[in-house]
């Protein structure tokens, strides 16, 4: 697998706090829009289709 699923954050707690802060004052619809923007920005940063497909596969494993 090309997708890195080992710990890679410079500061995991800070990231998680920023992520929840982003949504703190947003309603459901705004949160969905913000999430979509975030996915698009990060997906472009990664770029490599193989990696993205691997991430999409894991993301799709919802019960």
């Amino acid at each position: 697998m090309k997708l890195n699923v080992e710990a890679n954050f410079t500061d995991p707690d800070a990231f998680y706090a920023s992520l929840t802060d982003l949504h703190r004052n947003l309603d459901r619809q705004q949160s969905e829009s913000a999430n979509a923007r975030l996915i698009l920005l990060l997906a472009n940063h990664i770029g490599d289709l193989t990696i993205l497909e691997e991430a999409l596969t894991i993301a799709g494993e919802v019960k």
Partner: peptide, 23 residues
């Protein structure tokens, strides 16, 4: 609905960010 959200956000990002224009 979620496809529409992705579509609309892609268009909004495209105004200022070149990468989104490719989508």
């Amino acid at each position: 609905e979620i496809s529409r959200i992705f579509r609309d956000e892609t268009l909004k990002l495209a105004k200022n960010y070149n990468f989104a224009r490719t989508l």
